[in-house]
């Protein structure tokens, strides 16, 4: 423990032994993380895939965290923070796994404390063009109705992905997926409840709920595109084919939207840039603004401990 009178001095005090201020650093002791890549699986591909799934969760988690102190009711604030925490938990293990497979090394600099964990290096010291999350994860959530539409789409898609991943052969991905499935199902149920209440509520709440789905819709097309890394890993038996996930989201919306008296959005997809999207590090400007806030403290005090 640092004994200083000024909290900022304490944060900046670098003894490299204390706990780093921004993560809890338990990655070395999550036993599954250190398993070798399954036989026949390319290590770099697997690391990239772990980063994709980690960044989807990390970026979405940060977005949801922005509701803290801003939600319409205390109960919803707690709910959104809880969902953010679940996703952060998924992100942390996946970032550690990506780091164990070598993904963090290129982002380490000589000025960083050697004890800085892989997950912290990857979360705080990567620029937006190195994030491999889908652009849905980074979109501005705007109002509460749009956030509920966003959670329904995001959790429905990720639930289908994790359900498939559960039975595949990478021990870390399978373990993360097995934990994630009931959590995502719970989140989807929560948001679907609000979609029904708002959609089948007043004329005004109905309009806002429909506008929420309309705003989210252009980002859904990218969820079902297979990146070459994913295609290779599907063949190796450790990844889920994104093109197979569309039916789950369609089924959930076919069940939910009529009950909520909403219509299925028909808006053109946000286009890829030269065939490249979030999975290649080509993001909307929303991600840069978000990361500027998320990473600023860690970058200002790279050696901070507490």
């Amino acid at each position: 423990m640092n004994e200083t009178e000024n909290v900022y001095d304490a944060l900046a005090e670098a003894d490299h032994e204390g706990r780093w201020a921004y993560g809890a650093g338990f990655d070395e002791s999550v036993v599954e993380v250190t398993a070798p890549a399954p036989a026949g699986v390319d290590r770099d591909d697997l690391a990239a895939y772990c980063l994709m799934l980690a960044d989807d969760a990390l970026v979405a988690s940060q977005r949801l965290s922005e509701w803290s102190t801003n939600a319409p009711e205390l109960e919803e604030e707690v709910a959104l923070a809880n969902i953010a925490l679940d996703l952060l938990g998924q992100a942390r293990v996946l970032l550690s796994r990506a780091g164990h497979l070598g993904a963090a090394e290129r982002f380490r600099t000589t000025t960083m404390a050697p004890a800085l964990s892989d997950e912290d290096v990857l979360a705080y010291f990567r620029d937006d063009r190195f994030f491999r999350s889908v652009t849905l994860a980074e979109m501005d959530l705007g109002d509460f109705a749009r956030t509920m539409a966003w959670i329904v789409v995001y959790s429905s898609w990720r639930l289908a992905l994790m359900t498939g991943l559960r039975g595949l052969s990478d021990p870390v991905l399978a373990a993360v997926a097995a934990k994630a499935v009931p959590e995502l199902a719970y989140q989807r149920e929560y948001a679907a409840g609000w979609v029904v209440r708002l959609g089948d509520g007043t004329e005004y709440s109905h309009e806002r709920m429909q506008a929420g789905f309309d705003a989210v819709w252009p980002f859904t097309e990218e969820l079902f595109l297979a990146h070459p890394v994913e295609t290779r890993l599907v063949e190796a038996g450790v990844a889920v084919d994104p093109t197979s996930l569309r039916a789950s989201l369609d089924a959930d919306l076919a069940q939910l939207l009529p009950v909520a008296t909403l219509s299925r959005p028909e808006r053109p997809a946000v286009g890829l840039v030269g065939g490249r999207g979030g999975r290649d590090g080509v993001h909307t400007e929303a991600l840069g603004r978000m990361l500027a806030i998320m990473q600023s403290l860690a970058r200002a005090h790279p050696d901070a401990t507490w």
Partner: peptide, 12 residues
């Protein structure tokens, strides 16, 4: 003492 964290099988 070393405390290890294992995700498998998942807690319910």
């Amino acid at each position: 003492v070393e405390v290890r964290v294992s995700l498998t099988p998942p807690w319910t």
